[in-house]
């Protein structure tokens, strides 16, 4: 019998990301008539998010879910998704992150050089902003606020509007907001609900200005050991699952919005206001390009074509 494959995530067992990879595993198990089995280690019980890609590469685990914002340390070009308002519509996303699109192809190639293979991408939706008690509509409202961020490009966005970025881990977010260490934070829609951030912040500013994606990474070593037909099954199931994920996250975000609307005040930006945000945060795109390596530059060029 084959050995069971170890699958790790850094989020709880009932989290969207854990469920996606479980679904994938189920499908593969069914296709192989149970020849391939999986062991799940969720909640970072085996590997923390910081070491996820490394753990996949060195074979500690066979499959792991890693986020773009953390992998961006190794592949800075991934920060392209944090460039403000570059990926703010479904249409742009479909032309940038679905298999076969230029940006996806370039990034996949680079990720695959790190010892792990991106089997499929798991969309996580738009990043939005919450504030404790400050009603924000235009960039001018942001002056001198302390805002929770993650990653370098995300911080630049905050600085561009005159606020101060404070890097805080996902798990410390609640406390930082509760205690007033930060005045607000950038975070994914699902997190506002799952981490109960609505208890400590009054407003959602639906900037939806950047996109976050996760990757289902598979160990190169595990793949090499597999017979060709098995590898084909993995690829097929990955491709099949990915086609439905983008719809699913957009539906989920819509649902989250409805839930949160009862608990917080959701502020949508008017077209005029969005123009102001775009103008003020334009330097972030320039800095991404100027400070980026060749790969980042070519990804940026492709992204520019979508605007």
């Amino acid at each position: 019998a084959e050995r069971a494959l170890r699958v790790a995530t850094s989020v709880p067992h009932n989290h969207y990301l854990t469920n996606v990879i479980k679904e994938f595993a189920d499908n593969v198990s069914k296709r192989t008539n149970g020849e391939i089995t999986f062991e799940f280690y969720d909640s970072g019980s085996l590997v923390s998010d910081q070491h996820m890609d490394e753990a996949v590469a060195n074979g500690t685990i066979d499959i792991g879910i890693a986020s773009a914002s953390i992998l961006a340390g190794t592949v800075p070009a991934l920060n392209v998704f944090a460039v403000p308002f570059f990926f703010d519509t479904r249409e742009k996303l479909d032309r940038a992150v679905l298999p076969g699109t230029p940006i996806r192809t370039i990034l996949d190639k680079r990720i695959n050089q790190t010892g792990s293979r991106a089997m499929f991408w798991i969309p996580y939706g738009f990043i939005t902003m919450i504030t404790r008690d400050k009603e924000v509509h235009v960039p001018a409202d942001m002056r001198n606020l302390k805002i929770r961020t993650f990653g370098s490009t995300v911080s630049e966005f905050v600085e561009a509007v005159g606020a101060a970025p404070v890097v805080t881990s996902g798990s410390e977010q609640f406390l930082a907001l509760q205690r007033g260490i930060v005045d607000g934070g950038l975070t994914g829609w699902p997190s506002v609900e799952e981490r109960r951030l609505f208890e400590v912040s009054r407003y959602v500013i639906a900037t939806d200005h950047m996109y976050e994606t996760h990757f289902a990474l598979m160990s190169e070593k595990a793949l090499e050991k597999m017979p060709t037909e098995l590898r084909a099954i993995f690829q097929e199931e990955a491709a099949k699952l990915e086609t439905v994920l983008m719809d699913r996250i957009f539906d989920a975000t819509k649902h989250t919005r409805e839930v949160l609307a009862k608990k917080m005040e959701i502020i949508d930006l008017t077209p005029d206001e969005i123009v102001q945000w775009k103008e003020e945060t334009a330097p972030v795109a320039k800095s991404f390009y100027d400070n980026g390596n060749d790969l980042a530059k070519s990804v940026f060029d492709e992204a520019q074509k979508l605007q």
């Binding site: 914002s69 010892g115 990653g151």
Partner: peptide
């Protein structure tokens, strides 16, 4: 080995300092 691997792959932290 991990240090050499990290250097080869270009593994870095996801912060401003990288």
């Amino acid at each position: 080995v991990a240090a050499i691997d990290a250097a080869t792959v270009g593994r870095a932290t996801a912060s401003v300092l990288r």
